[in-house]
């Protein structure tokens, strides 16, 4: 097997508090291969988002990465000088957050927000940015002409797709998605996740998909890791973690999810 795209080794992140250190991520190791969709599951507070922030070195005080390595293409991101990191963040590692749709600037037309990103990272001219933006709009299923609109003219689901489009415009190798659809209703959620899968198949990027919804995760990921109180308690193929979970906590997580009665699971529009 090829060397993984990202290899996280013994990562430990502490929150430094008055009362002492609280270890939010405790000696966590996992890797994501090229073109792989890796899911990280767990309850709120288990440390899954803290890992996302550590990878992009966006952790803010009192969070402190106290140990471990994050090898991205063999280079440790944690040791990288800030100036060099700028070439990797967004350009090679993109991020989509839960409320990302609210991170669009309400005063700027969407095409200008594409230009903002593409000009800064790739030195694109306005014409080049517009062309790339329209291409990305087509990819996420929005009429390219609408790129001249303002964010408020789009629905929440469309805005989230626009954020994904902006993220993809830089053709990153890894996209970190932290609860990208949690604020949206299920139909829009399925629309977005199917689109992510198709874009992934087309471009071959890797995905770190963070969510508390194990069902959604098993529908989309290749491998899954389950976190409990800062520790990675189980990592495995999607079929193993969903059909034969090894850890008691994973089974608990599965059992706690309200699901539809069997009679309602006929697979409409399948």
């Amino acid at each position: 097997m090829d060397a993984p795209l990202i290899d996280i080794r013994n990562l430990t992140v502490d929150y430094l508090l008055d009362k002492g250190a609280f270890t939010a991520v405790n000696n966590v190791s996992f890797s994501i291969g090229r073109g792989e969709i890796f899911g990280l599951a767990g309850e709120s507070g288990c440390g899954k988002s803290t890992i996302a922030y550590a990878i992009t070195r966006l952790s803010k005080a009192p969070a402190w990465v106290s140990g471990g390595e994050i090898l991205f293409d063999g280079v440790d991101l944690l040791q990288m000088p800030e100036a060099k990191l700028r070439d990797i963040r967004w350009t090679r590692i993109g991020m989509v957050f839960q409320s990302a749709m609210n991170s669009l600037n309400p005063l700027m037309r969407v095409k200008d927000q594409f230009h903002d990103v593409l000009n800064r990272h790739e030195g694109f001219s306005r014409e080049q940015s517009l062309a790339r933006g329209e291409e990305m709009f087509r990819l996420v299923g929005i009429a390219p002409g609408r790129i001249h609109d303002y964010p408020h003219q789009f629905s929440g689901g469309m805005r989230q797709r626009i954020v994904i489009a902006i993220c993809l415009a830089l053709k990153p190798d890894l996209i970190i998605m932290d609860e990208p659809t949690t604020a949206l209703d299920v139909v829009v959620q399925r629309e977005i996740m199917e689109q992510v899968l198709d874009l992934q198949a087309q471009y071959g990027f890797s995905v770190l998909f963070i969510t508390h919804d194990l069902h959604l995760m098993s529908q989309t990921c290749h491998r899954i890791g389950v976190m409990l109180k800062g520790q990675l308690v189980e990592v495995g193929d999607v079929s193993q973690v969903s059909r034969a979970p090894a850890h008691a906590y994973t089974r608990q997580l599965w059992d706690a999810i309200p699901h539809l009665p069997a009679t309602a699971r006929q697979g409409w529009f399948a």
Partner: peptide, 17 residues
Amino acid sequence: LLSAVPDGERPLRRGDS
């Protein structure tokens, strides 16, 4: 609505978006 409720036993199909 029912078709979109996440169901771990029904993986999303690639090429279906």
